[in-house]
């Protein structure tokens, strides 16, 4: 092996606030993989000329996933727990040429922020919402989350989680969203592909990204080693071309079906109120 010093920089550094790296996420946390894939989709759009960098806005709430807004070198907002979609809706309505992307964990987006998710999807609001599902409240130390598997030990369900998980893909699909997909950080090329596609659409676009949290969730299920958790999740992912909603349940036994559940081109909210896109 011929070793030399580093002469070039990471291809995504141009979109990152590199002064803030290394980021706060724990070793093996899937958030960085998700963020990298999202950045590559954005990079592709910018290079093609179908997206302007200065029009991108990242809006996040609170939680590990919400910290993505620390690191992106775009306009970014780190707002309140659960309220990122509401903030993003206001920004988009006020300035329709913005491309507003909300990133949050399942607790942020579908727990405390669940009502905003429902209504943004109902009005087919012109937003991209990326919900990163790690099955647990991680930043606060391992409490039960909307997507936590039934029966699992967490710090607030020490006798086992009595509630089955929330299938957010199914919920959002029942509303008026234009795009609903599920991806996994174990398949970063698909994350990139779905985000790239969403960036070219109008209306409400929702992508759930399954992720790994070895430090907290991994501890709960006995998989602290990052690659063990990563490869376990990967082994449970079933990629389908056009999956049906009926097979979308978050089921650690049967596996997780990922793919594009819903793709359509209905008028977005901005079209309906007479302030069409651009």
């Amino acid at each position: 092996m011929v070793v030399s010093t580093l002469e070039s920089s990471h291809p995504l550094d141009k979109y990152l606030r590199t002064a803030r790296l290394p980021h706060i996420w724990c070793p093996g946390c899937g958030l960085g993989i998700a963020l990298g894939s999202i950045m590559r989709a954005i990079d592709k759009r910018i290079k093609e000329g179908t997206l302007k960098k200065e029009n991108l806005v990242f809006v996040t709430g609170i939680g590990c996933s919400a910290r993505t807004s620390f690191y992106v070198n775009f306009d970014a907002a780190h707002t309140l727990h659960g309220r990122a979609i509401a903030f993003a809706t206001g920004a988009k309505l006020a300035k329709p040429e913005l491309e507003v992307i909300v990133i949050g964990g399942d607790g942020d987006i579908a727990g405390i922020g669940g009502n905003h998710l429902l209504h943004a999807a109902k009005r087919n609001m012109d937003l991209i919402v990326l919900m990163i599902t790690n099955f647990v409240y991680a930043m606060t130390g391992g409490q039960v989350a909307p997507t936590t598997p039934l029966g699992l030990y967490t710090t607030t369900t020490p006798h086992g989680n009595p509630e089955p998980p929330l299938n957010v893909v199914k919920v959002v699909s029942s509303l008026n969203a234009n795009y609903v997909a599920r991806a996994s950080v174990t398949h970063p090329a698909l994350v990139e592909q779905y985000v790239y596609k969403a960036l070219g659409m109008r209306g409400f676009r929702f992508i759930e990204i399954l992720s790994t949290c070895p430090e907290i969730f991994g501890r709960h299920i006995g998989m602290r080693d990052p690659f063990t958790l990563y490869s376990t999740l990967r082994s449970k992912v079933i990629v389908k071309q056009s999956p049906s909603i009926e097979e979308s349940d978050l089921d650690w036994g049967k596996g997780f079906v990922i793919g594009e559940y819903l793709v359509r081109d209905n008028p977005g909210y901005l079209d309906r109120i007479g302030r069409g896109l651009k």
Binding site: T89, A91, K92, L93, A94
Partner: peptide, 9 residues
């Protein structure tokens, strides 16, 4: 929250 977002836009 939407008002805060709109003001930032």
């Amino acid at each position: 929250n939407a008002v805060v977002g709109a003001s930032w836009a």
